[in-house]
Amino acid sequence: MTATVLAGWLGVIEQAASRYGLDFASLLQRSGIDPELLQQGTARVPQRKISDLMQLAMVMSNDRGFALTVARQVRPPSWYSLGYAIWASDTLLQGCQRLQHCAALFADAFHVQLIEHDGELQVVLRQAPLLRDPLLMLDWEVFAATIVLTIRHLHPAKPQPLRVVLPGPEPEMTAPFKRLFGEALAWQGEEVVLTFSASLMKEWLPGRNPELARQHDELSQRYLQAMNHRSFSRQVYEQLLSRDSLREVEAAQVAEALHMNLRTFQRRLQDEECCFRELLDQARHALCCRYLNNEQLSMGEISYLLGFANVSNLYRAFRRWRQEAPGEYRQRRRHDSLACLQTGGRSAQALIPVTFR
């Protein structure tokens, strides 16, 4: 899955960057993001580019807590109609339920789950399955901080979470994180877990407005329906990535997996000016990079899994994709991973150019 984020979040990151005096136009250019997207709030930006933009801004600002600064700039319009619906909710629980059902509107890289037990309500953020580019620590931090700050804005008591668990290693400077999340903060989890008092989450909010919330719920549903309709090619691509092997895969097999006949399948792709062969090539590219990161797989095994007739075809395809040999890519990624471990960040990886209409 190639995750995306609502383009309106670029404005949020721009506001955060301005607090450090950073040249945002330069940051956008270095992250491969079209500056025109700043004026297109309902467009979509690849999650990976947003992640790289924040990572670069964090380095340039020399502030490990840059994600927290980003979260502090979030306002209802940053979430489009979902933001207004959450702010008009009757209770914090209802707002979290809206987030659970419509999170993909602003970011589809993670899923939200609500768990109530023993008088506590947990808001759990999990990475979406089949995500091609794993989320960074900064991504988890900005999502978690945004939820906590929104809850604090909405409730007059400005409640703190009872407990917070964040993924990734504990940073050297924990003070900014504990000021925002509270002292009961731990790292090294595999997901974000925000724990609140269940009774507090069910209290009436002073700013509740059911009619306003309903209208924005309808707008959110229309946006999500249009988003899903436009991305049939994404569904096909994700179906290809979910397979154990791309050997001898045919369009008819994927159409069957998506519960439609081949003619409808081909028409849907044509409507998006796309073809199955193009998506199969993109899926091979993405999976090849993933397989090369696994040192246990030989070139012959990778070639077989991707459906190439021989290793020579794999080499020719990889040079077309990335202008280098697969062995060179594997060696460079090994070097980047070692550097990443030494610096505690994520190594820079070339973007895989996948475009969905």
Results as ranks from 00 to 15, higher is better:
172 E>K: 14
132 R>A: 15
218 E>P: 00
162 L>N: 06
134 P>G: 07
187 W>G: 04
209 N>E: 10
236 V>E: 08
222 R>C: 10
208 R>G: 09
176 P>A: 02
131 L>I: 04
210 P>W: 03
220 S>R: 02
242 S>C: 02
157 A>D: 13
180 L>M: 09
198 A>L: 10
182 G>K: 05
236 V>P: 07
227 M>V: 12
145 A>H: 08
236 V>G: 08
181 F>V: 05
209 N>P: 05
114 L>Y: 01
196 F>I: 04
140 W>T: 04
223 Y>C: 14
239 Q>A: 11
198 A>N: 01
144 A>Q: 08
117 H>G: 00
183 E>Q: 12
110 F>N: 08
124 V>Q: 13
140 W>V: 02
155 H>W: 02
128 A>N: 07
214 R>L: 15
187 W>R: 06
171 P>I: 03
119 G>I: 02
151 I>N: 13
139 D>C: 00
181 F>A: 07
228 N>P: 02
127 Q>A: 14
164 V>H: 05
167 P>V: 03
188 Q>P: 07
163 R>Q: 12
210 P>R: 03
130 L>K: 11
219 L>F: 10
217 D>C: 08
140 W>E: 02
128 A>V: 11
225 Q>M: 15
147 I>M: 09
235 Q>D: 09
151 I>W: 11
222 R>N: 13
199 S>A: 15
222 R>F: 11
178 K>L: 05
200 L>G: 03
190 E>F: 03
197 S>A: 06
170 E>F: 06
167 P>I: 03
109 A>Q: 14
136 L>G: 11
115 I>R: 15
242 S>V: 04
120 E>Y: 07
111 H>P: 02
143 F>Q: 15
106 F>P: 05
192 V>N: 05
170 E>N: 04
220 S>K: 00
119 G>W: 01
156 P>Q: 08
160 Q>E: 14
243 R>L: 15
151 I>Q: 11
142 V>D: 08
195 T>I: 09
207 G>Y: 07
134 P>E: 03
121 L>V: 09
239 Q>E: 10
177 F>Y: 13
133 D>M: 11
227 M>Y: 15
223 Y>I: 14
134 P>K: 02
244 D>G: 14
144 A>W: 01
220 S>N: 03
145 A>D: 07
208 R>E: 09
209 N>H: 13
133 D>P: 09
113 Q>Y: 10
126 R>D: 13
125 L>W: 00
175 A>K: 12
190 E>Q: 12
240 L>N: 00
212 L>F: 15
168 G>L: 01
232 F>H: 07
133 D>A: 13
146 T>Y: 07
230 R>P: 08
219 L>P: 04
107 A>I: 11
156 P>Y: 05
120 E>Q: 15
154 L>P: 00
127 Q>R: 13
119 G>R: 01
156 P>G: 03
213 A>Y: 09
188 Q>I: 07
152 R>D: 11
141 E>G: 02
202 K>Y: 06
194 L>F: 05
232 F>E: 02
177 F>H: 08
202 K>P: 06
233 S>F: 04
209 N>Q: 13
168 G>I: 00
221 Q>N: 13
206 P>V: 03
152 R>G: 10
221 Q>D: 14
197 S>Y: 01
112 V>R: 00
107 A>W: 09
